[in-house]
Design a protein around this nucleic acid. Sequence first.
RNA 1: CGGGAUGUAGCGCAGUCUGGUUAGCGCACCUGCUUUGGGAGCAGGGGGUCGGAAGUUCGAAUCUUCUCGUCCCGACCA
Length: 478
Amino acid sequence: MARNITPKEENYSQWYLDVIKAAELADYAPVRGCMVIRPTGYAIWESIQSKLDFEFKKTGHVNAYFPLLIPNSFLQKEAEHVEGFAPECAMVTHAGGEELEEPFAVRPTSETVIGSMYAKWIQSWRDLPVLINQWCNVMRWEKRPRLFLRTSEFLWQEGHTAHASSKEAREETLRMLEVYRKIFEEELALPVIAGEKTAGERFPGAIDTYTCEAMMSDTKALQAGTSHFLGQNFAKAFDIQYQDKDGELQYCWTTSWGVSTRSIGALIMVHSDNDGLVLPPRIAPVKAVILPISKDESAAEHDIFPKAKELAENLNAELGGMFVKVDDNFHMRPGDRFFMHLQKGIPLRLELGEKDIASGTVRLVRRDTGAKIDVKTENVIPEVKNILDDIQKNLYKRAKNFREANTYDAKSYDELKEIIDSKGGFVRAYFAGTPEDEVRIREETGATPRCILPNTETGTCIITGKDNGRLTIFAKAY
RNA sequence: CGGGAUGUAGCGCAGUCUGGUUAGCGCACCUGCUUUGGGAGCAGGGGGUCGGAAGUUCGAAUCUUCUCGUCCCGACCA
């Protein structure tokens, strides 16, 4: 049992912070609301980045970089956008020792700057579509920060595309939602519900917002990624026009989509346990660690360590990366090292000691189940691959079972209220209400509509009683 | 931003009410010896000016005022 981690049953928030601290993922920065992402945490972000970036490239996108500072007047151009972001904008009012004529906002998102550039770049239908992504930091001043989940500055990617038709832009919006769903489910082992947001939860300035919604291990919901169909709202605000084949001037149709370091928070909260972090193998920067063990410190270092190193090299060659490390902390006793790797969430531990060498085996210990398996030396490489795959599948399955076990149906508003109040979790209910209804539901139950389930029949709305209700997930959310 | 709690060594805490020698303890850290397959033992050692500022006092970790951070609950918000 970990002695530096509060059990999640006792205090979930504290558990979350303890896991982050024990795994050395992040630390508080001197600036309120900001965090330092430590090397171990940053490696996870790099891992997520590389998976996403590969998919972006595969779907025809290119990377670029736009400025951090945004003229205040830009934000003002789209009415809903400014209303949505103004309260959380940090403004730069002075520079070069003087007060600026026009303050700059530190970007909370880049629709406006990028829109202004698209207006210059796009002339003809031949220029379309424009498919650009940027990896950057953004700032949204937060009153109640939580590491990874809600910090004033965070890292993300934001894709911004411009298209000739509504149809193409809608397709793009859904294509990227699907990219996100795939990465979350297949790489991060996070089961998500990819659906549409209700009107009250939409991105400021969007026509439609789609989300990947995940359930954390306290049954609360977390939005892990979003994709927005912006219609012609930003095109009109920034005058992004092109000449079509008939020589007519047309406004573009745009989209934007993003995933942030918040996804690391989801990763932590979905898989980890009371011993600390648990990482799915496909996203773990270190997938396995080999421990040379001996009663004799110098034998471990001089006799066993070279064997362990050789095994690591063979595994890395097979796995195609520097994914397997050898623990060379010879000054630590085995017990201490077990706990260290446990808390860092390394999916698989390989123990190589004198006993193993004598019997021609290696002991494998799974992080997800704690199961110990002795494997013949010649089978280690295929076994490690198999077990890593199995851990990946098991984590996904475990999370999905948990979500399903904590998902309920409500036939009426009273029932919704009762379930949220007594059990929590996700509640499915037909809904066709207004944003005002959403506010009322939040005030009365604490839950919000997280997303509309795709491909489902309509039913009787629990608020209006009309039969055009869409099947919607309600939950308390981060 | 409102309510509650809290801030003393890297971490966790005692001391504060009833001001008074060099501010303690556990873990961690350093050195040595013994240990080593699920968080070792003994011995020796280093590290803090008590979140910050101002004030009261002969004297402040301790009292007063202000301020900052953090945590929990809420409001607001992705």
